Simulated assay, not measured.
Amino acid sequence: MKASDPASHGPVERKPDPETVFLIAPTAGVWTVTKDGAFFGDYLKEEHAQASAQCAVAAILANGGAAKAYLMPEPAAGPETPQVPTALEAVVCDRPSRYPVS
């Protein structure tokens, strides 16, 4: 084998895929879900938005990926209160189509 042949250098170390992040936030009367900063879906109820994001996380985890979902609280009364998202627990999703993206 030639020294420049990739096979002569041993196994290639694969970097893990970056973690996919879902963020659920109240926006203009609906709950908006984003995936890595891109629009994923709007929901009329907070629990439907959470279920959608959690099912998406479950699907990614089931396929060997890394993902988390975070819930941004509704805006506080004053601007001096920082908005800190809360991490949601991973769930087993047996009916991912229950809350379709509208």
Rank of each mutant, 00 (worst) to 15 (best):
V84Q: 02
A66D: 10
V57M: 07
A69K: 08
T34F: 00
E89W: 05
A90E: 14
G41V: 07
T86G: 03
E47S: 12
A53S: 12
T32M: 04
P85C: 04
K68H: 13
P79G: 03
A77L: 14
F40A: 15
P82Q: 05
A56Y: 03
W31N: 02
V30Q: 11
A69L: 06
P82W: 05
V84K: 06
A66H: 14
D42W: 01
G78D: 11
G64C: 10
E47L: 05
P18K: 15
G37C: 03
V84P: 00
A62Y: 08
P85R: 15
A49N: 04
K35A: 06
W31F: 04
I60Q: 10
I24S: 03
G37N: 04
P85H: 12
A76D: 09
G29R: 11
V21S: 08
P75R: 12
K68Y: 08
L88N: 10
W31S: 04
G78K: 12
L44F: 04
A66C: 03
A56F: 05
A49T: 02
V30N: 13
T27C: 10
G64Q: 13
K68Q: 13
P85M: 07
T34W: 00
G29W: 06
P75C: 08
E89Y: 03
A69H: 07
C55E: 03
P75E: 12
P79V: 11
E47W: 02
A67T: 12
V21M: 08
C55V: 07
T27W: 12
A67Y: 09
T20H: 11
G29E: 06
S52L: 01
G65E: 12
Q83K: 13
V33G: 06
N63G: 13
